[in-house]
Design a protein around this nucleic acid. Sequence first.
DNA 1: ACATTGATTTCAAACGTTTGAATCGTCTAC
DNA 2: GTAGACGATTCAAACGTTTGAAATCAATGT
Lengths: 368, 368
Amino acid sequence: MGRHASGHVTLSDIAQACQISVSTVSIVLSEAPLSRHVADSTRKQIQATARRLGYHPDAYARSLRRRRTQTIGVLAFDMSDPFCIPVVSGIDEKLQPAHYFSLLVNAQTQRELFDRYFRMLLERRTEGVIVIASWVFEETGLLADIAKNHVPIVIVGRDLTRRRITSVLVNNRAGGALVMRHLASLGHRQIAVIRGPDEMFDSAPRWDGIRQAAVKAGIRLDPQLVFQLPNLSDPKSGFEGGVRFAKAMLASGRKFTAVLAFDDLTALGVVRGLSEAGLRIPQDCSVTGFDDVLPADVATPGITTVQQPLREMGLLATELMLKALDRGQQDEAQDAGPHIVQPRLVVRASSAPPCVGRQRCLETGDAI
Amino acid sequence: MGRHASGHVTLSDIAQACQISVSTVSIVLSEAPLSRHVADSTRKQIQATARRLGYHPDAYARSLRRRRTQTIGVLAFDMSDPFCIPVVSGIDEKLQPAHYFSLLVNAQTQRELFDRYFRMLLERRTEGVIVIASWVFEETGLLADIAKNHVPIVIVGRDLTRRRITSVLVNNRAGGALVMRHLASLGHRQIAVIRGPDEMFDSAPRWDGIRQAAVKAGIRLDPQLVFQLPNLSDPKSGFEGGVRFAKAMLASGRKFTAVLAFDDLTALGVVRGLSEAGLRIPQDCSVTGFDDVLPADVATPGITTVQQPLREMGLLATELMLKALDRGQQDEAQDAGPHIVQPRLVVRASSAPPCVGRQRCLETGDAI
DNA sequence: ACATTGATTTCAAACGTTTGAATCGTCTAC
DNA sequence: GTAGACGATTCAAACGTTTGAAATCAATGT
């Protein structure tokens, strides 16, 4: 049993043990259509022997012969970003009933690893690749290779439709507007804003939404109270930026009753910075985030934020992928625009009506 | 170019384009020893053609022939547990220079998926499997199959040495003692404790360490102030338990100046519960966690906790795995005991000397 | 002229599976 | 008694790659 160098049990081991041909064993164990014609006694014997020897079909040999790998590559730009996990769960959930497996790799925000893994996915003959990435960089030769090898791609978190790549993303503009409207409806008029880094795709549209909503609400954003995070990929840089900018806001001497932060970690940084200066959240100042990651939920006070339907984005991306695979490579007709999902405001304890003089809180705050 | 049904460029495509045999092409592109003998001009031509056509070797065909997959399966019991990611990073980091790839799968706390994926890893002929799991369940038939197929296993987060499986874990007993000693040295005498769920492997040793350290410090743990989390695998159940137990503590009427929580999320739940009752952390009550996950760091106040060297555990597990692979299957000599790494106390703002009457804070607190 | 060497390239078998076509009895029909 | 049909099983080629052994050719030494 298992005399092979590889140490694995093969079809021919079973065939020998049963005194029968490899073909029949294969037909039975792979439940091929022909297995209807195999005698019951034979089938039983083969199955029993397979179980006894601990047989598991060799995915490599099988895929080589069948010319199907049943595998979708999932390339996460940074798995330690809480953003990723729910997307991946959504993908797996949808892939499972379609009898596909995901091959998950983590580029750890490193360009070099990204390339390496992408190549690996091609070598592993993944039938398609789903990329989860919000950071921008130039994908030069790789995309060309992918096209040459006819591997469909779906990207989550960025719009690459102008390069004819199916894209799934959240409506950042609407999300930004959602928070701004929320603060305005609470009565805030002096609002500090922390924008996202330039290189992050979400930054620009989110900022657009914020500005537009401010204009509509008749709120002027004081340029002295608008800050921008630097281009760092370290997951904690948002938090540290929040702390730093909170102190800068206070030092500026300008009056503000709320801080609209680019994302949740930045918001948590702001909370830390303001708290250390003795302010209470939300009595003395409201703070809002974006993303609805775990820390925003379990911090005290909970952070008011915008939830992206991450799981749904994973489901949608997978659905588009399966559809593309179904179409086969002859019909290259891409769906034109990006697939946009809608975000949702999650109100928690970090936002409340504004106060006068930063000490006493107003009973109501229903401006606008 | 790429006339094959699979749509992928193969060696024979290149061979045809260059009017040369497949063997030579293979020798050149796989940089086999023989390639020293290939004429420079031929080599150049082959490489250029390969690049032009976008050739990527077929990992399936290659592994089938070479009888090596260069793959280590990594089976995470729950990827949404922040515990996992750093371990996985450590694994990848160590695997890379050894020219191995990790095949990462997520069982999402579902027994059924765990089995399914384990079987999948066997079919994919991973040369070894690293399991990241803290929850306990009965691995019946699978472990036997694995033994039959001679696939080495390393488990991170549990002690399975009695089943002769190499195990890497943190010294939970020492960790528990670390927190208790910290609180004692701050002067706390009345300490509430929230124990982990029964089914979690870490629970028992951590509780042992806590009790022993309490005895040594001359502290009596009031049974009315000892709580235990239920057996729920939902990631947020710790947080909710913390909130609930915090209220129960206050309702009990007993006096306590600190809460030692099973893990960080539980600690954050306690902070929420106490805050909602009007207590301030740490002035009115200290709170400690365990694990040092992201939310503990970015919450305000930061949670004093015990850090597990997760990345290092990943590195160590991989090192043991590579060593086992090196030994080959003939020498089955397992290393006897579990491999234990030491945890580290991280002091943040959530712990401070105790107060009198829960309102004024003592200037110093140097009891014991 | 012929064996020897060395540099370059090719042959052919194998890895473990799948599958269309072929085989071999046995049975029924006319 | 032969043709056809059917049921159960096997043949053999293929998937794309690697690799030990063999082949080819030109140049060198005797």
